[in-house]
């Protein structure tokens, strides 16, 4: 009993000792030396976003994605919406230069208009990230789709679908003057150069307009009922192309390939319904994440604006009947905003 009591005392003492010593003996945390400067580098900084316009899937998606990533870090995320007016956009960029945000995220309307201004901005020490549509000036970073690749992949798919058929295809371009349209056309030409058997019966610009795309396609289909494929340049416009195909009763017989931001209603559901056979998505949420990542990296690097220059081309997701049902192929805006 006595022993037992002693033992108990020893144990108690040991326990007490252990209790006292425990903090010293437990696993000790390490201060990560770079996260604080990272946070400091970002907090209070202003990032200005100049899309060509808000209110459409791409720009809204990028906006929501970047905001979600950046605002918790104390970054002030501002938006300048020129609403399709190139002149207003140039003015917005000009006044941003004198306001001196830390980073400018620029969605160019064409390859030239902002080029001089962006150069000036980087000279003034503002990082410039160009998204989806580059300019003649190469800035710190480009994040976006590779239009040539889009043109090539779409055309390859159409050429493949045409095998053993009439080999007649049509091209529905965007606006002639838009670089995205011109680059995509270059990709189309690259592939067609390798396939001399393919005959382009019509290559028209529909000006990003669904109604015009439908009118053109209708006429082309009336002239060439044996058409085997159409390369479209944007899914928002090619709704019209697809409607013309459907009305002609040629759904499934004419292969419609297009591209877009991969928003659920505009991409997956239309592929599911058979309107499009292939929709190459440049997956806006991933792009937004890449943009946010680039901003974080640039701000925390401390590099001089314009001293380093790089590009991140988006990996394209080909949406076809096989993956159109998958949750990951497409995105929708309300989810992205959550």
């Amino acid at each position: 009993m006595k022993y037992a009591v002693r033992t108990a005392k020893v144990i108690a003492a040991a326990l007490g000792l252990a209790a006292i010593a425990a903090p010293a003996l437990a696993q000790q945390g390490l201060d990560e030396p770079f996260q604080k400067p990272f946070k400091e580098a970002l907090a209070g900084k202003t990032v200005a976003y100049v899309p060509v316009a808000m209110n459409f899937d791409l720009t809204e998606g990028w906006y929501a994605g970047m905001k979600k990533e950046l605002e918790p870090l104390g970054v002030k995320f501002e938006i300048r919406d020129p609403n399709w007016n190139t002149n207003a956009g140039a003015q917005a960029v000009t006044s941003l230069i004198s306001e001196k945000p830390a980073v400018m995220v620029i969605h160019n309307p064409d390859v030239q208009t902002y080029a001089k201004l962006l150069q000036r901005a980087e000279n003034e020490g503002i990082y410039v990230i160009q998204i989806n549509m580059g300019s003649a000036y190469r800035s710190s970073a480009f994040v976006g789709a590779n239009w040539i690749e889009i043109g090539e992949k779409d055309t390859e798919a159409v050429v493949k679908a045409c095998q053993g058929k009439s080999n007649k295809i049509a091209i529905v371009q965007g606006a002639l003057s838009a670089a995205a349209s011109a680059y995509t056309l270059k990709g189309v030409e690259n592939v067609l150069a390798k396939h001399p058997e393919i005959k382009v019966v019509s290559s028209q610009a529909a000006d990003w307009d669904a109604a015009k795309a439908k009118a053109i396609t209708q006429t082309v289909l009336k002239q060439n009922p044996d058409l085997c494929g159409i390369v479209g340049f944007w899914d928002g416009m090619d709704i019209g192309t697809a409607a013309a195909v459907k009305e002609a009763g040629l759904t499934g017989k004419v292969f419609v390939a297009t591209s877009g931001g991969g928003e659920r209603k505009g991409a997956c559901e239309l592929v599911k319904s058979g309107a499009f056979d292939l929709n190459l998505s440049y997956d806006v949420p991933t792009q937004a994440a890449q943009m946010a990542g680039t901003i974080k990296w640039l701000l925390s690097s401390g590099a001089k604006a314009g001293s380093i220059k790089g590009s991140e081309y988006t990996t394209l997701i080909p949406i076809t009947k096989e993956n159109a049902d998958s949750q990951t192929s497409c995105w929708n805006l309300s989810d992205l905003k959550k």
Partner: peptide
């Protein structure tokens, strides 16, 4: 002279 651009949308809606 300011922007040096002949972008397609120049002057649209002006």
């Amino acid at each position: 002279a300011r922007l040096g651009t002949v972008g397609g949308d120049i002057g649209v809606g002006l």
